[in-house]
Design a protein around this nucleic acid. Structure first.
Length: 566
RNA sequence: GCUCGUGUAGUGUAGUUCGGUCCAUCAUGACGGACUCUCGAUCCGUCGACCCGGGUUCAAAUCCCGGCACGAGCACCA
């Protein structure tokens, strides 16, 4: 007890508190809890004594007293933030099967990245597998984009750092789903409903039995056959799963499992007239693949409940299910894959990798690193909160990932030409200088700059016609007199606290255009880029500007740069 | 409206299962400083939170009750 009293007194500079001390004591000695009331007085006097000691002889005395009796108490452990994802419930190492199931109606977006990152990370944690499943059983409302399958496979691999363990296209697994549907009808836990959608909704909301529900298995099977043979028009019939109509959530009552679609499927064509809806297809396939854990958005909570009802009919056990909440990125408003597809088709964007789009393709093109994206999503973790985050956060993850390997270059925007006058200052580095490729030496070597005839470029924004004093980074302190374009060298070494600016000898400079995304616009800044060892596709850090990717490096004409972030 | 879910600093996040070592973690951000040299990195410092109200208890972010706020689902989309 004295130990805690002293500890508390030391930690709070002689202002230990009895309540806190009692808490620590009882936390460690569960056996004393029943006598908490009796202990209280004792603790209070002990704390008072400890505080008194600290007050009269200084905190050091209390510290020393504690060190003499209980040195270990000096090192109190502060609580720590858990790292990585929280444990998966009922997970057995080596037997975990997860899945990531996008609709291939376009390439992956930043939102999908969460699914890839979380699922692949869990697979890594438990030495499990991830099934990449294309949920492409809608031929009409959100039809698949044939190219998207390959894109998604590649993007999954890029982001997860390894390919998916199993890849499945739902559209190729139709026989499995149709067989299960038939089994459901035969088992009389499903039925063919001929009501219109709105009629059914009315009955459902009133908890009333639809007339189709009570028909015989034979009648259902006959209608099922007709549906599959294409004898019933789209919307003319739907297969429903029988549920308790007293279910409090109307969305779950006799939910639809399969519907008729006569539109050709972009991949498998007109092979089927009846297609399963997500809840049915996904439920069956999860069971077929032995999925043990489903991690999905909480907008799919009702899906879990619907599918659980179906699993009960089949006598299966539903996988463990975890949810994440909705994520909004400040910088990208409400983008949907189908919305982007339309905007690209009408020319609003140049393609799926248009830097203004929140697609993985665009992010990758700009220079975002897969490991950084993964780290970001894992740090967010799995919470059901609906959150709104800023790209700034993602950018900071990216900076810490790429900074060490990005070489520095000088890019002078809106250049102003000055001529260097070193006549008043002897010494100096001579006809060339060399700067580090990376200031912390993470990338070894240097960049050699020929100085030429003393014609140099600085950003006009750094020195207007009124002149000023500047330090040309890693070179010289200069003064520019008002109305002139002469930079007079005052000192080679840093002599005062004048602003440090980046600059370029004119003979090292080559024309470049830096494109950056500002809101919904692309803004181009023209300038002169340091022409030292430029590599097509490389990401460089432009001093005092930020990271940018070299998009093209033509033999003549300006270098194209795409801004990544600051 | 019905059903479900969620509320911890500006933004995210740990801790909530099982009340106590929590005057609450970490990151990001903002601000200030250091650094023989970027608006980058690094280092140091500062700022800042348990949705509200009751209750139980020696002790509540944690348990109970009641509010409030926000979000999602209620498609023959995924």
């Amino acid at each position: 007890m004295r130990k805690y009293a002293l500890q508390n007194a030391v930690e709070y500079d002689g202002a230990g508190q009895a309540g806190s001390v009692l808490g620590r004591l009882l936390g460690e000695r569960a056996d004393l809890r029943g006598r908490a009331r009796d202990l209280k007085e004792l603790v209070e006097s002990e704390v008072a004594a400890a505080n008194q000691l600290a007050a009269s002889e200084g905190v050091e005395a209390a510290h020393a007293a504690l060190a003499a009796t209980n040195p270990e108490a000096l090192q109190r452990q502060k609580q720590q933030k858990r790292v990585g994802l929280k444990e998966l419930p009922e997970a057995i190492r080596g037997e975990v099967v997860l899945r990531f199931a996008p609709n291939p109606n376009g390439p992956l977006t930043l939102g999908h990245a969460r699914g890839v990152a979380i699922n692949s990370e869990y697979a890594k944690m438990y030495d499990g597998k991830v099934v990449l499943r294309f949920d492409d059983t809608d031929t009409k409302v959100k039809p698949p984009l044939p190219e998207a399958y390959d894109w998604i496979e590649a993007q999954y691999e890029w982001l997860a750092g390894r390919p998916a363990d199993i890849i499945i296209r739902a559209s190729e697994r139709m026989p499995v789903y149709l067989a299960h549907a038939e089994q459901m009808l035969s088992g009389d836990f499903g039925y063919v409903c001929r009501c219109t959608a709105s009629d059914f909704k009315q009955l459902r909301d009133a908890r009333e039995v639809c007339p189709c529900r009570t028909r015989s298995v034979e009648e259902n099977l006959a209608d099922w056959q007709a549906m599959n043979d294409g004898e019933i028009a789209e919307g003319g019939a739907v297969v429903r799963v029988k549920t308790d109509l007293e279910l409090p959530n109307p969305a779950l009552r006799d939910w639809p499992a399969l519907r008729i679609q006569h539109t050709a499927h972009p991949i498998v064509g007109k092979a089927h007239n009846v297609w399963p809806l997500l809840d049915f297809q996904s439920a069956i396939e999860d069971h077929e693949q032995g999925v043990t854990h489903i991690v999905r958005g909480k907008d799919l909570m009702d899906s879990t409940r619907k599918q659980t009802l179906l699993y009960e009919h089949f006598g299966w056990t539903y996988p463990q299910t975890l949810y994440w909440g909705r994520v909004k990125i400040h910088e990208f408003g409400g983008f949907s894959t189908s919305g982007m597809r339309a905007a690209i088709e009408n020319g609003e964007y140049s393609g799926w990798d248009d830097p203004r789009l929140p697609t993985l393709a665009a992010l990758r093109r700009r220079g975002f690193d897969a490991a950084a994206l993964r780290a970001f999503w894992i740090d967010l973790g799995l919470t059901q909160k609906d959150i709104s985050i800023s790209m700034q956060t993602i950018e900071s993850f990216n900076s810490s990932e790429i900074d060490a390997r990005c070489e520095r270059r000088s890019f002078v925007r809106g250049p102003r030409l000055l001529s260097l006058d070193a006549s008043g200052c002897s010494g100096g580095p001579g006809t060339s200088i060399s700067n580090a490729r990376h200031p912390d030496g993470a990338v070894e070597g240097s960049r050699k700059w020929e100085l030429g005839d003393g014609a140099i470029l600085i950003e006009a924004a750094d020195a207007d016609d009124t002149g000023g004093s500047l330090r040309l980074k890693d070179y010289a302190d200069v003064d520019i007199d008002a109305g002139t374009s002469v930079a007079r060298v005052e000192s080679w070494s840093r002599s005062d606290r004048r602003a440090i600016v980046h600059w370029l000898p004119q003979i090292m400079a080559r024309k470049a255009r830096l494109t950056r995304v500002i809101g919904h616009d692309l803004v181009v800044e023209e300038g002169m880029l340091e022409g030292f060892e430029l590599v097509d596709g490389a990401i460089v850090q432009l001093e005092r500007v930020g990271f940018a990717r070299i998009e093209s490096l033509p033999d003549d004409g300006p270098v194209e740069l795409l801004f990544l972030h600051g």
